[in-house]
């Protein structure tokens, strides 16, 4: 089955086309990583088109779509999630969501990415690659990450530990999605991993306009 995988949880948008078979590692046929910053909405659809062309496939050939659900800065994250949902809906195929951090690096590791507001999104993985803690969002000073740490290398100093630069990959997305791809009945609703509540506070009591 051909699977389209995409992720917009970090400033690098990732799109891959893979041949997936139950039990075996996915074979990535084409992949693009675009440092698109806050231009995910502009660049994602053209990148999907380019990856399909590079892999010699058409939309109609796809059997499933995989998307990262974050955590990641919300505005960009939603672009990927809604794109995956819409592509899959239009083609009548399943869409599978995975934790984006699961798709960064492999084996025993701590993954840390930029959560803005001087915080990091992080998760820890055991030797078999399974997530044992997180995803969560915290201030670097409040964490003592277990090495090796991979992800956003800009946080090395604040985390007080070496961070090997690593990004979401199509292979990582496919690996994280394998259980759900193998058992479509297990596919969960596509809900982004926001980890924070919306910033919104009810307004105070009505202010007087005539008295300060």
């Amino acid at each position: 089955m051909l699977v389209l995988a995409l992720d917009t949880a970090t400033p690098t948008l990732v799109v891959g086309l893979a041949r997936w078979t139950d039990g075996g590692p996915a074979e990535v046929l084409a992949e693009r990583a675009v440092a698109s910053g806050n231009r995910h909405a502009e660049l994602l659809a053209p990148t999907v088109r380019a990856v399909l062309a590079a892999g010699g496939a058409a939309m109609a050939d796809l059997g499933a779509v995989v998307t990262g659900l974050g955590p990641g800065p919300y505005t960009g994250l939603r672009v990927g999630v809604v794109t995956a949902a819409a592509l899959a809906d239009a083609r009548g195929i399943p869409v599978v969501g995975v934790c984006s951090l699961d798709a960064i690096g492999d084996g025993a590791r701590t993954v840390a990415t930029d959560a803005r507001r001087k915080e990091v999104y992080w998760a820890r993985y055991g030797a078999d690659g399974a997530r044992v803690a997180g995803p969560a969002v915290d201030r670097p000073a409040d964490l003592t990450p277990t090495p090796p740490v991979v992800g956003d290398a800009a946080f090395a100093e604040r985390l007080g530990v070496a961070v090997t630069a690593a990004e979401v990959t199509a292979a990582g997305l496919l690996r994280a999605a394998a259980p759900q791809l193998a058992d479509p009945s297990s596919v969960a609703a596509l809900v982004p991993l926001y980890l924070r509540r919306p910033d919104a506070v009810p307004p105070p009591q009505r202010k007087s306009v005539t008295q300060p």
Partner: peptide, 8 residues
């Protein structure tokens, strides 16, 4: 993003 995906 949704409209672009449906169009694609």
């Amino acid at each position: 993003a949704a409209a672009k995906a449906y169009a694609l």
